[in-house]
C-alpha cells in the first residue's frame, strides 16, 4: 500500500514540476526552470532513498553478501 502511495506521490510531483518548468520556460526564465527541475529531482530522490536502501539490503541478503 505504501509503495503505491509513494508511486502516486512521485507521479504528482513529476506532473507539477513539468508544468512549473513549462511556465518558467515560456516566460524566458530557463535558468530558474532548470533549478526547479533539479529541486524536484532532489525532493523525489529524498523520498525514494529509503526504498533504494531497502532494495540494496534485500539484494545483499538474497545473495548472502
Amino acid at each position: 500500500m505504501l509503495g503505491i502511495d509513494l508511486i502516486f506521490k512521485v507521479a504528482a510531483i513529476g506532473i507539477i514540476v513539468a508544468v512549473l518548468n513549462q511556465l518558467l520556460v515560456r516566460s524566458g526564465r530557463e535558468d530558474q526552470a532548470m533549478m526547479t527541475t533539479l529541486a524536484g529531482l532532489v525532493v523525489v530522490l529524498l523520498m525514494v532513498i529509503e526504498q533504494i536502501s531497502y532494495l540494496f539490503e534485500t539484494v545483499k541478503n538474497m545473495f548472502g553478501l
Binding site: 506521490k9 504528482a12 510531483i13 507539477i16 508544468v19 512549473l20 511556465l23 518558467l24 516566460s27 526564465r29 525532493v43
Partner: peptide, 16 residues
C-alpha cells in the same frame, strides 16, 4: 507566471 507558480507550489507542498 506568478499566479501559476503560487498554486503549483501550494499543490507541491500539499503532496509532500
Amino acid at each position: 507566471l506568478y499566479r501559476g507558480i503560487g498554486f503549483l507550489v501550494g499543490i507541491f507542498i500539499v503532496i509532500l
